[in-house]
Amino acid sequence: MTRKQLFLLLAAVLLSLLPAAAHLFGNPYLLSLASRILIYGLAAASLDLLLGYGAMISLGHAAYVGIGAYAAGILHLHLGAPGLAPALALVADSEVSGLVILPLAVLAASLAALVIGALCLRTTGMHFIMITLAFAQMLYYFFISLEAYGGDDGLSLLGRSKLPLVNLDNDTHFYYFCLFCLIAFLLLASRLVHSRFGLILRGTGDNERRARGLGVNTGRYRLALFTIAGGSAGLAGALLANHSEFVSPGLLNWTLSGELMVMVLLGGIGTLFGPVFGAAVYLLLEEGLNMYTEHWMAYMGPLLVLAVLFARNGLLPLLISGRKRHG
C-alpha cells in the first residue's frame, strides 16, 4: 500500500467516524462544520478538474456553485407551493423532491457552464481568467436584481430536500449524504482523468499546438471538461443551499471563486483529493483565527502568500511524500 492510499484510507475512516465523535463530545456544531467542509471540498475538487487537468484557470467557478444553489432554492420553493403542474405535484407529494431538485440543479449548472464555456474557451491565458471572472460578475448582478427570488436579500428555504431512505433534515444523515456525494465525485473524476479523455486534456494543457497537430479537437474536450466541472460545482451549490437552508448572490461573488482557488492550491493542484484537504485547512484556519482575532484576514493574507511561495505543490503532496518533491 502506498503512502497515498494509506492516507486516503485513514481520512475515509476518520470521516466516517466523525458523527460518532460529535455525539460523544456533545458538539453537534462539529457535524455542521464538517458537512460544510465536505461541500466546499466538492466544489474545490471540481475546480481542480479545470485547474489541474485542463489548464483552464477559471476565476468564476463560484458562478456554477451559485447557479446550483439557486436552482435548488427556486425549485424547493415551487415544489412546496400549491397550484403546481400535476406531474410536478406528484413528485412534490411523494416526498422525493430531492430526486428532482438535485439532478436539475446539476443540469442547470452544467448548461450554464456549457454556454459560458463555449464563449470563454475562444480565449486563452489571461484573457480566459478575466472573461470567466466577468461572466461570474454578470451572473452575480443578475441574481442581485432577481427580485422574485429575494434579490440581494437571498432566499430562505424552509427545510431540506426530501430523498428516499435518508432524512436530510437530520444532520447526521445529511453529513453522510455529503460524504457519499463527495466520494462518488472523487471516484468518477479520478476515473475520468485517467481515461483517454483525461490524457488528451493533460496533453493539451502541456502543449496545445502539439495536440492539435495530432488531429485532436482540443476545444471540444475542454468544453466537455468545463461542463462537467460546472455541473459538479452545481451539485456542491445545491448541497450548500440545503446545508444552510439559504441562498444568496454572495455565493456568486468573485471572492468565493478566489477562496475555492486557494483551497485547490493549499491542498495540491491536480490531485483531486488535495483540494478537499485544502478546503478543510482553509475553513478550519478561518474558524480558528476568527476565534482569536477580529482581524483574521491580516493573518490569512500573509499565510496565503507564504503557502504560494514555499508549498508550491500544496500541502497534501507535502504530507504524503514527506519532504521530497515529485511531479
Binding site: N27, P28, Y29, L30, S32, L33, R36, D153, G154, S244, F246, S248, G250, L251, N290, E294
Partner: peptide, 22 residues
C-alpha cells in the same frame, strides 16, 4: 461573544449555528 458576519447572510447563519450549538 462577538463575531463578525462580514455582512454575509451565509456567514451570519454559520455564526448563529455555532453560538447555538457549540
Amino acid at each position: 461573544l462577538v463575531e463578525d458576519d462580514e455582512a454575509k447572510p451565509e456567514k451570519g447563519k454559520q455564526i448563529a449555528q455555532r453560538f447555538a450549538q457549540k
